[in-house]
């Protein structure tokens, strides 16, 4: 392990899947990002942009026949691509944990949540049954589950959606992972419960120094929760940077247009919403140049070559405009 290496460094990650008749399709192309200790990074994009596939690749959980993963995923400096199953499984239990939109992906309906967390604990630490249960109850309490002793004796279906999500997070955190990957953890929840879970994630970072890779399609969730943000579009990084800078002045026309198309909750109500024409391309029909070009208001000849990520201030952007010395895309709706 390399003490100076970032906690997680993903470089030029490309995920290729077979697409029938001997053809292949790149679901994710040359995606790079890093995550430091005690940091929450948002991986944001619309459906099909490659968010979940990237997360599954980090977890070593892509087992589709014929899938090819290229590039590099280093965890504390150690390469994960090509690591054998046993080593990966050990890492997953202890160092990297994942939570999902649907808690039933991680919990089984046939045992109480307490039993499931106990088992997880005992698999990685030498604990007695009673010792494990004490720790489980403590964990559930830390996750904001009221009356955790009783909740531990419940089956998942006996808990509300918000409590199930908390139980899954408790299980994921049972072995103090240094990296938590959260894939749309609040998408199925109501806003008032979502607010509770996002509070919890922020607290984990603050109190336990956990690092979180937060995958979401919701720009509001990112703005409120993440220190840094990576925007994906059609399997490629469109831009990344500190959340503050990125929301104040998006550098990629896609990010700007996406933010503009969200109806504002306050301030003046636009007569029409600025919208992006068309729809994202299927991975098999992605243009060879900038993937956003067919929908971009600024598209021109130079965009027919795939732009690489270039720094602009604290951000990095895969767009030709800044390199051409052109102004960043203006926002259509002035925030109040």
């Amino acid at each position: 392990m390399d003490a100076d290496a970032p906690l997680l460094a993903v470089d030029n990650l490309t995920i290729t899947l077979p697409a029938g008749r001997g053809r292949t399709v790149d679901i994710v192309e040359n995606v790079s990002f890093r995550l430091d200790g005690a940091e929450i990074m948002g991986l944001v994009g619309e459906s099909g942009s490659g968010k979940s596939m990237s997360a599954l690749a980090i977890m070593g959980l892509i087992d589709a026949p014929g899938a090819r993963i290229a590039g590099s995923i280093r965890f504390r400096g150690r390469e994960l691509i090509g690591l054998d199953r046993r080593a990966l499984r050990a890492l997953r239990g202890a160092e990297i944990a994942m939570i999902f939109q649907d808690p039933m992906t991680a919990l089984t309906p046939v045992h109480t949540v307490g039993w499931q967390i106990d088992e997880q604990l005992r698999a990685h630490q030498p604990l007695s049954r009673a010792g494990a249960r004490a720790r489980t109850v403590e964990l559930l309490g830390e996750m904001g589950v009221p009356d955790p002793r009783r909740a531990a004796d419940r089956y998942p279906h006996q808990l509300s959606g918000g409590l199930r999500q908390r139980a899954m997070i408790a299980m994921a955190l049972s072995c103090n992972p240094s990296l938590l990957i959260a894939d749309e953890p609040t998408t199925a929840l109501d806003v008032t419960v979502q607010a509770q879970i996002l509070d919890l994630l922020r607290r984990l970072r603050q109190d336990f120094g956990s690092s979180i890779l937060l995958i979401t399609h919701d720009m509001g969730v990112v703005a409120e929760t993440c220190d840094r943000t990576t925007v994906l579009y059609s399997g490629n990084v469109a831009e990344h940077g500190p959340t503050d800078a990125l929301f104040r002045q998006p550098a990629h026309p896609y990010t700007a247009a996406l933010l503009d198309s969200i109806p504002p909750l306050r301030g003046t109500r636009p007569r029409r919403l600025p919208s992006i024409p068309g729809a994202p391309p299927a991975p098999s029909a992605r243009p060879p140049g900038c993937p956003f070009q067919p929908r971009c208001a600024y598209g021109h000849v130079a965009c027919e070559t795939r732009p690489s990520l270039l720094p602009i201030g604290a951000q990095q952007v895969a767009c030709v405009l800044p390199a051409e010395g052109r102004a960043l895309p203006p926002r259509a709706v002035l925030s109040a």
Partner: peptide, 25 residues
Amino acid sequence: AALISAVPEPSVGVTTRRITLSGDV
């Protein structure tokens, strides 16, 4: 009021007071 305050807004710099509701419906 609680419902509105729970909506995460896609902008930085707006400071809104979050009214956190406990428990579920």
